[in-house]
């Protein structure tokens, strides 16, 4: 077992009156640059995270890290670390609080893989390959595990397709040619409904009950500019957030008003790298960027629709020491956000 010291820094906020007494930052230093992270959802494994490495070698790592809120320390176990081919593009735990469910982790890269977590080891449970005829499979850019139907995982790929997997049967359920170019991110919006973003610059919504049609609800006004990130607000399914390549803007869409953004959140001074909605409440959004800041936005507190959405100010902000490349809002602790930059994982208590 390895214990890690913490450094406690106050969050910088817009107004001193909003500062909470418990607000702080807890840091864990990994042995390698962090590419992606995920929070455990299980009620018996709260404050557990998985972090994936970003190494230019074929062999990468995924490690489980446990945060202890009482002592404010991180603990790790070398047995709960596993090798991963290529840097994982996304990681997710089994999206259920029920401890009776299997303790699984899904990762994506060259394939979608499912790993089973035991007390003393992590085993590869299954590898899902869409290409029956060969070992080749196009790189998977991202995936989303449906919390409302835990058998379903939807993946996005550079081969322009999105695939819905039935992980119980370990079989491909539906494969759609979703876009004209590489698909970079995917997110479930509800039972049978998901959305994806692509190198063609569009956000498309798919309904699995009508597979012959998709709906373009937004197109990047910057011509030939890909959309790289997408997150559907699970708590308020009217709202979708997306980010373009090399853009300092987070675009918030309301599906009732297609083509026109509800908000353009453009207070970052560098390219936005990741976004995460607050679970359960669904009114707040956290974005992180190359300007080394994490901004928290009160999306529904604003007048709607904002005539000049770009003037919306963040509710609070945090400055790190380097470009932040990943953010995830805790599913179990609504006051906790995890961010990653360089080798450092930080938990922001907001």
């Amino acid at each position: 077992m390895r214990k890690c010291s913490r450094d406690r820094v106050k969050l910088k906020m817009q107004s001193p009156s909003e500062k909470k007494p418990g607000a702080g930052v807890y840091s864990y230093m990994a042995q390698w640059p962090i590419s992606t992270l995920a929070w455990s959802v299980r009620c018996d494994k709260k404050s557990r995270l998985a972090i994936g490495s970003f190494l230019e070698d074929y062999s990468n790592k995924v490690e489980l890290v446990q945060f202890n809120p009482d002592t404010s320390d991180f603990t790790t176990d070398t047995r709960l670390m596993f090798d991963h081919p290529y840097a994982p593009t996304n990681i997710m735990f089994f999206p259920s609080e029920d401890p009776a469910n299997p303790d699984l982790i899904a990762t994506s890269g060259d394939y979608l893989r499912l790993w089973e977590v035991h007390d003393d080891r992590i085993e590869l449970k299954s590898l899902l390959n869409s290409n029956k005829s060969s070992e080749f499979s196009s790189a998977i850019t991202s995936f989303d595990w449906a919390g409302f139907d835990t058998r379903r995982v939807a993946t996005s790929s550079v081969d322009t397709t999105c695939i819905v997997w039935d992980i119980e049967r370990e079989a491909l359920d539906t494969q759609l040619v979703a876009h004209d170019k590489e698909v970079y991110d995917i997110s479930w919006g509800g039972f049978n409904i998901f959305a994806s973003v692509s190198g063609d610059g569009s956000v498309r919504v798919f309904d699995l009950r009508d597979k012959e049609r998709s709906t373009i609800i937004y197109e990047n006004p910057v011509r030939d500019c890909p959309l790289l990130r997408l997150e559907w607000n699970k708590a308020d399914p009217r709202l979708i957030a997306t980010v373009g390549m090399d853009s300092n803007k987070v675009v918030v869409l309301d599906i009732r008003y297609p083509t026109t953004p509800l908000l353009d959140l453009s207070r970052h001074k560098g390219s936005v790298n990741a976004i995460s909605w607050a679970p359960c409440i669904g009114q707040q959004l956290c974005s992180v960027a190359d300007d080394s800041t994490a901004l928290i936005w009160e999306v529904l507190g604003a007048d709607f629709p904002l005539e000049n959405g770009c003037n919306l100010e963040p509710l609070m902000w945090y400055g790190s020491g380097s470009e932040i490349n990943q953010v995830r809002w805790s599913a179990t602790d609504l006051d906790c956000i995890a961010i990653a930059f360089l080798n450092k994982l930080q938990l922001l208590k907001v």
Binding site: L124, S126, L128, A171, L172, Q175, L176, S202, R204, R213
Partner: peptide, 24 residues
Amino acid sequence: KGMKISTNQNTEKINVIKPQPRTF
């Protein structure tokens, strides 16, 4: 790493569908 693992061996024929995109 050379280990045998469980891969999806389901041999059902999967049709790749190309939905027609609609825009507003």
